[in-house]
Design a protein around this nucleic acid. Structure first.
Lengths: 209, 209, 209, 209
DNA sequence: TATGAATGAGTCTTCATTCAT
DNA sequence: AATGAATGAAGACTCATTCAT
């Protein structure tokens, strides 16, 4: 195909872009957007300061790319799980929690999540984008799932349909706790997920490996 | 009397300090710590740039004073509610949620809460202080309350005793949602509190005025 | 007399002025003109910051008053000694050195001398005033004295008549050494004066108490 | 050749550093340390304000570099002369005076000398460094020279051995006079040196070209 | 008259961004 | 394409001076 020659070069390009993005994520996560210096990011990426500007027009774009680049695959993956709902809503949600654990909370993406929480107030357009592309569809999927559960009579209370955000509460709590208080004591993330599932659903059927 | 001149002066001093702190809260909440300019805070307070420095030695102290000044009364009040537990744990928790609504979420203190979430990663000593003086004792109070509920057989699941943070989840979700997505849709705070209570406790007894 | 009532008040005024000037001298000597803060001077004088401005229109005037106030009496006194020349030029010069020791180098006026050396480059008009009122007449007196000595055949070399500044060299060296290196070792001021006299004059007649 | 690029670069670096140091010397000499603005120095050096900070971490370092950079070569040179003492102490000292004239008093280094006199009181550590590396060894060399002269019976008075600082008195007087009173009349530097030599040494042997 | 709270001009310093090599 | 030296706009902080009390 015609794009075979391009990929050789563009892969090297693409790789360097990723390296810079990863370095940016660590640095932004460690210092916050305003306090992170481009030079630090460049150093962390092992490139010169000017090189960053070959890949991103400015600091803000770098930050936004961080989010939009990493968000798309995550959304696809998470949506897949939630939509699949192979056997039961509870199992689907449980699988979702597990996915979030392995794909977000246990990876560098946890930093991204924290960064979005801490920095988004300063980037309203990112918040809008994030809301339109992740939060709203995500909440709709959750709502669909909960509706199914409700129709099946598995849901403890219909009221949660009005605040589907409660479903992601343990994820957020976990992220925030890790961000603020991890030095002072761990947060039992697994227990939080189980409490959440136990509370949401009537039947205490546990997911088993 | 001789003490008339002093009180007038010192009241004016204290007042001015509060005005600056309030201006700082708005400004920090709007821009974040790093991006907020002292001059903006001064302007918002209706004073000159240098005046801020008569009351706070530097920007960081101003920020920290914001937290330590406002935290103490809040802790006292919240602890009072949680410790009182007049009739039942559920009622106590419900009263606590109501208090948080009227005293925090509906006031400028919501900004303070958001600010603590977003800026504390950059101020580890503030996080330590906040954890030692608010979070840990707060969680212990919650645990005590939940233990009482459990002993009375009112608790749905004992597992929540391991993650008392789940009790404050709706508060945090509400604060975070308001901070990030309020332009795109409201969060039904009341519903979240009710879901939380309904899920935590067995008997669906509603608190009535 | 009519001015008797005034003196009561004006003495108090005059006293306060002196107190402020003394405080200014210490402070300027310790920190230099630019780094000395008016507030420090006020504190050292035991008055409020604003009070300084009741006596001197601004910082620069305060500094200049320091010099002009203290210079006049010094000039009169020094000139008296040099002009008197009771017995011999050497004795007159020796008396002058002794006077400078007791009236300048051993008092706070040494600070004034140092201050003039260090700060005058930034105050050309002060330098002009100082040159016109102290240096030039002083040098003329010295020259007259040296001429007398030369006429009497007591001077070792007539060349010093062209550089009468050499006569005050030991004074300046002493002041500068004390200003820069006193922590690292004393300067034997007496020896310097004797060397200077011995070198200038032929007969080794010592002055005796 | 490959080493052309590096030397060019590194020479340009070193050159720029020197240019900034020279600009700093003029500016500090003209205004004093506290009143000199970094921007003025940058402008005088023909570089941007920020560039100064690429070469020196802060204003104080710039000032100190000024001294330490220029002192080392001067010390080496001066010590060489004093130690050589080829024929006679008097000739050595005369050569030293001549060297100081051509290498210091007639060059921009005179500003450095004046700057050290005026600013060192505010930089005690510089004074200590200067005393340890220039003054003390210098005074010891002078003392050695005077001792030799004394042993040879060429010295007028042994008392000067206790105050070797008198030997540099004409240098200091010249520097100070130039700094304070040059607009009002020149100081005959040559005459001062001759008077000093004539007074110190017995034999009136003149150094001849 | 004396005070010290208030002010804002002035300065150092940082860092995103540009550009010559 | 990659670099890092150079730049200057921006912001924290200081302090001489004013002025209401």
């Amino acid at each position: 195909m015609a794009d075979q020659k391009r990929p050789v070069r563009s892969k090297s390009q693409e790789e360097r872009r990723r390296i810079i993005l990863d370095a940016a994520l660590s640095t932004f996560a460690a210092k916050g957007f305003a306090s992170a210096r481009i030079e630090d990011i460049a150093k962390a990426a092992g490139v010169g300061k000017g090189t960053v500007y070959l890949y991103f027009p400015d600091k803000e774009s770098l930050f936004k790319s961080l989010i939009s680049d990493d968000l798309a695959p995550l959304i696809a993956h998470g949506a897949g799980i939630l939509e699949a709902s192979p056997q039961s809503p509870r199992k689907a949600l449980s699988a979702f929690y597990t996915l979030v654990e392995s794909e977000v909370l246990d990876t560098q993406r946890a930093d991204l999540l924290r960064l979005m929480i801490t920095e988004m107030p300063n980037f309203p357009d990112v918040a809008a984008y994030y809301h339109a592309n992740l939060i709203r569809p995500g909440m709709q999927l959750v709502q669909k799932l909960l509706t199914i559960a409700h129709d099946r009579g598995e849901l403890r209370s219909a009221k949660v349909l009005e605040v589907p955000q409660m479903v992601v509460a343990p994820i957020l709590i976990s992220a925030i706790w890790g961000m603020l208080f991890s030095p002072f004591g761990a947060f039992d993330r697994r227990a939080a997920f189980e409490v959440s599932l136990d509370n949401l659903f009537l039947s205490p059927e546990r997911e088993t490996p």
